[in-house]
Design a protein around this nucleic acid. Structure first.
Lengths: 359, 359
DNA sequence: ACTCATAATTTGATCGATCAAAAAGATCGG
DNA sequence: CCGATCTTTTTGATCGATCAAATTATGAGT
């Protein structure tokens, strides 16, 4: 008798065979209730836990999901992956799955890692982030019948509806639309948009949400929209500069929706510096920064993304990996994000220069 | 013949026995060079990779390190864990180790998870973060002979030098000292410190670095030091308020060292708002925020922390887990962080109001 | 050539669980 | 009370690798 009890030990104590113990664990339905109870008591008494490695060897499944830790998650929104990882790990645990990390500098290196992890029976499904059009990874995974789900749509037109390519994404358009509508509902009539330069799958999608709200709620035409949108790269200082200029050129502006919290921070600083601290500004990602500084932002609801990923991988209830062919309509999932409204403005400096619009 | 080749297949092709193949993989030294070459060729030809589960079952080791994903890593410095994870995963890969994630809401739940992962041969060593005095986790791990290393000192006096408790930490004191000295070297004579309320292991340690520099370089006495230090909790707005007050009461202040980037951001905003954008401010953690806004900060060098963790766990070169008894002097490791100097100040608004101190 | 130590390789057993198929037990109509 | 059918439990084999011990090859010394 080793230190850790095995099925055999449990079987002995419960006066049944190994297999019955195994059945209690895996298919309790087929075991007579009285026997099951006896076995369960023996398990509890011995503190038995089944050996994962042995189980994996026999079943040829690792119950493990691999995910690459992106080297360039930097930037203020970096915490998104962090939170997603946390949610994924938690959800995975509920389904008896584990999350294993790996790193790779290039897509090719990542494929090599994936191959290693899979051939060694270390991992049996993968979650990819930051996919792009014509991504060699997805192609390879499909060709080699490795189960995977991506967090993020493949922005190529063809790929998007490929039932072989499962994905979960956040509906950025809906999020920005909600943000814009919120401002309009609060009385704004000149809502500007600060986005990333096109083309950017995510960025363009979010911009559309703003455009949609503006068109339906304020009946803006294309020309008006073009005049109300500005772009800049993901950089706080650049955003400040752009918004300073923006506020000078368009004094009538009474709301600003930003594609990210970084840009929102830049905008906050610019607005405050010209005495427009009352200007409602909304960011995206609801990062700790938005919380700390105190501006509204669109929350991605990563728990939903995480459970979506696992559902696509394993089925709604399932504890087993699904084959490569989920029901056609069920290959993709779009999560609607949620606007988190914060009453601007926490910062004392902004407070001081704020006009006293109380409502 | 299954889809994936096994040792048997390789052995057949190389005309040797399974065990010889195994030896080539594990103890190549004892295999005759000619044979080894033949086996290696067969391995390459078949694209053989050994099955991790089988290996783990037999050896009772998983070559996997477990780490808990802290639920409350939020806050602006949250990215620290993120970067540490990345570094750890990368370093682990070099040593043939994997990193597995898990979550737990309480220390007790974490112990339960650790037990599960270990009993199942899923993980054979753990990395703990956010340890505290009298932490039940470290106690349990030591009692149960589970190898582990913590990232962060145990701040209890007794625990600190316990050779059973391996730890790696960043020398916050040295980092803040370097930051303070940098300001003094640049001509500052009234360097204030903005820290967290005592007691806080990390916070008090960092504060000491500042105090040390002030004492040795500027010959400040305790009274002077007490007057130059302020405290606030980790909150941007609170920091802004504190620093606004500070600048009013102490106009002579010509340098500010902060215990974190969040507080530094608050200080930046306060300083700029009263026309003191030229005030040199230094944060801690070198988060994306510091980079985006453009202030100096102390970088933790998490790659060094990660490799330190693995060295304590496995020995300098080792590929095997070390027993519970490393050489006494080698049980702890203190990483010296690095000051990242940024030329203030990127933000256009600050730029505008900055006095033209060119040096 | 022959012994003996050492190096190199092979064989049989084993890690702990699950699968597949066989065996034993229960249920029921006639 | 018997055989047919269904339920429940047990037995033997297996997953793929490594360990421990046995076997065979190699070499040095006399």
């Amino acid at each position: 008798m080793g230190l850790l009890p095995t099925v055999e030990d449990v079987a002995l104590l419960a006066s049944v065979s190994r297999q019955t113990v195994s059945n209690v664990l895996n298919t309790p339905a087929i075991v007579k209730p009285a026997t099951r109870l006896r076995v369960e008591e023996a398990i509890a008494q011995l503190g038995y836990r089944r050996n994962a490695s042995a189980r994996r060897l026999r079943t040829q499944k690792s119950s493990t999901i691999g995910i690459r830790l992106d080297p360039m998650v930097n930037g203020i929104s970096g915490s998104v992956l962090d939170r997603f990882l946390h949610a994924l790990t938690e959800q995975a645990d509920v389904r008896g799955m584990r999350v294993l990390l790996f790193t790779a500098a290039t897509p090719e290196a990542e494929i090599e890692q994936i191959r290693r992890l899979r051939d060694g029976s270390d991992v049996d499904a993968f979650v990819l982030t930051a996919t792009f059009h014509g991504d060699p990874r997805t192609e390879w995974l499909i060709d080699n019948h490795v189960p995977f789900v991506t967090f993020g749509r493949p922005w190529g037109i063809d790929d998007m509806n490929d039932p072989q390519h499962l994905w979960v994404d956040v509906d950025g358009s809906a999020g920005v639309r909600a943000a814009t509508e919120h401002l309009i509902d609060s009385g704004a009539t000149h809502v500007h948009y600060l986005g990333w330069p096109s083309p950017s799958g995510t960025g363009d999608d979010r911009r559309q949400g703003w455009a949609h709200a503006m068109r339906t709620r304020l009946h803006s035409d294309d020309e008006a929209l073009a005049a109300l949108a500005s772009v800049t790269v993901e950089d706080v200082a650049k955003a400040t500069a752009v918004v300073l200029d923006l506020l000078e050129r368009h004094p009538a502006i009474d709301g600003l929706v930003c594609v990210s919290d970084s840009l929102a921070l830049g905008a906050m600083i610019a607005a405050a510096s010209v005495g427009r601290a009352d200007l409602p500004i909304i960011g995206f990602d609801n990062t700790p920064l938005a919380q700390a500084v105190g501006f509204s932002s669109v929350e991605q609801r990563l728990e939903l993304v995480a459970s979506g990923v696992l559902e696509l991988l394993m089925g709604a209830t399932g504890s087993d990996l699904i084959g490569r062919t989920p029901s056609p309509g069920e290959a993709h999932r779009l999560i609607t994000p949620q606007l988190v409204v914060r009453r601007p403005n926490k910062l004392p400096i902004f407070e001081a220069s704020r006009t006293d619009s109380q409502s």
